[in-house]
Design a binder for these strands. Structure first.
Lengths: 265, 265
DNA sequence: TTTCTTCAAATCGTCGACGATTTCATGAGC
DNA sequence: GCTCATGAAATCGTCGACGATTTGAAGAAA
């Protein structure tokens, strides 16, 4: 459903391991942790990636609000693997700041503070500015065509008005622009930050005023295609500042925060 | 000896686990992997951190050239822990790009290619430029004093002419400047990149013309203290470009590369 | 009723072991 | 002499189990 934040070439062979894979019993027992709807797909693909993606998507889609506990035994049962595998995935999720690993107390879905949110956006602006500047230098004509195709895709997603799908295309756009910069390291860092931003945006559900975001995207592409580095950077910056402001305004109230408080012990 | 690249609060209690800690027998057996001198210190501190630091220092000090195999059983024996612990540390080292983890084929010390090296420096320039700009905005008088203290420390290290110590102070300087930017996320990314740069610099042993580096550091501090963002960024950029050029020039020959080729199968 | 103590259930950290894959040396064949 | 098949040793991936810590609730005392 969503792209892979930190893909890794694994080939974990041996063992059938497809025993209690698609478990997910409807009436969950005495366990307090509400993790319904995690094990969505059960293809024959890589198990680790499937666990990672399931948690990631769960957080993104609000099924796993911040503070939700992710006990190792429960994940083991859901995916039919041993704790060693689950533990590895949790460590990866922790590194990407999607869950928090408290020693001897288990893993919970991360809950970014307002202060953290501000720093994340500040870092993202710095990285995207640097990458856009590189993109202006290095882009080719074919790249611009591909960006236009993406913008067209955005328009279609906008018409459908299904928020998650739109958010996905927007994320794609930013990543594609960043890729033009031609620096895999900066791109990896930005991928991480965009994931965290998506998580935050999902939390504060911005009710999607996608129209103006789309126009800003168009403006950025225009500046890049004309080789105007200064305008491209300024446009990107304004775009990101706007995104952050829209979130911060929605922050104080919102029923979601209450929902989390009911959810965490 | 060196600072901690990615510190984590762990408290791994239980079990004495201080059995064969300070092993390191002199005459190494039939094993081909040369890992002499890894387990340097054996304090009662955190075991994971000790393993991480030992490998890190070993790579930095050329005792572990790129391509050196790091078999899990060997590390287990050296530090007196089980493979679960070693495996966790290796995963962390892989994420920080210090070792490469090939599935079913073990871990080896990472060998950055020239292309990677270029990208690392490019990313570092971007991050340090952004952070210096923030530092100019946010620094206080006390910060400048501390930087001056660091510069004085550099002069002393320069007099002693012991390369590793000097490199350590230089790394400290960059990190302190970056810390003034007040963004923990960008700081963490930069810390990672500076570690990787240090590894590369160690490989190509730049014979330390520390004098001019020191003067460039002074110039950067001067620009920051005067609130001149443009000059601070330009100075930092020039400094980093100089550092990279000095390395690239030394790259082609150097006896070290031959040594690695003998080491790897 | 409230608060503190005590205890059992849940969960985590670490360990040793088994099967699978890779690697390396030995020896046959050309 | 060189190349390729064969087998054993080394190493990795995964699993289940044990002890330690935390958690949450039941019960006693104020």
């Amino acid at each position: 459903m969503t792209q892979t934040p930190s893909a890794k070439p694994r080939q974990t062979a041996s063992k059938p391991a497809s025993a209690a894979a698609g478990a997910r019993k409807a009436g969950r027992g005495p366990a307090k942790t509400d993790m319904a709807g995690i094990a969505a797909v059960d293809g024959a693909a890589d198990v680790e990636q499937r666990i990672y993606q399931s948690v990631f998507d769960g957080v993104l889609n609000q099924r796993l609000p911040p503070g939700t506990k992710l006990p190792e035994p429960a994940l083991c049962a859901l995916f039919g693997v041993s704790r060693a595998v689950v533990r590895k995935v949790l460590q990866r999720l922790e590194h990407d700041r999607i869950v928090e690993l408290r020693p001897n107390r288990g893993a919970v879905v991360a809950a970014p503070t307002p202060e953290e949110t501000r720093k994340i956006f500040e870092a993202r602006r710095a990285l995207e500015a640097a990458l856009v500047e590189l993109a202006v230098q290095r882009h080719s004509g074919k790249d611009i065509e591909e960006l236009h195709a993406l913008l067209h895709q955005e328009e279609e997603a906008m018409a459908n008005a299904y928020q998650p799908a739109w958010a996905q295309t927007a994320r794609n756009f930013h990543l594609r622009v960043a890729a033009l910069g031609g620096n895999p390291i900066l791109l990896a860092y930005l991928t991480e930050l965009i994931s965290r931003c998506s998580l935050i945006v999902a939390l504060y559900e911005p009710a999607g005023n996608a129209a103006c975001e789309h126009e800003e995207h168009c403006d950025i592409v225009d500046a890049i295609s004309k080789g105007d580095a200064k305008r491209a950077v300024a446009s990107m910056n304004a775009h990101l500042v706007g995104l952050e402001e829209r979130i911060c305004l929605e922050r104080p109230s919102s029923v979601k925060t209450l929902a989390q408080m009911l959810n965490l012990a």
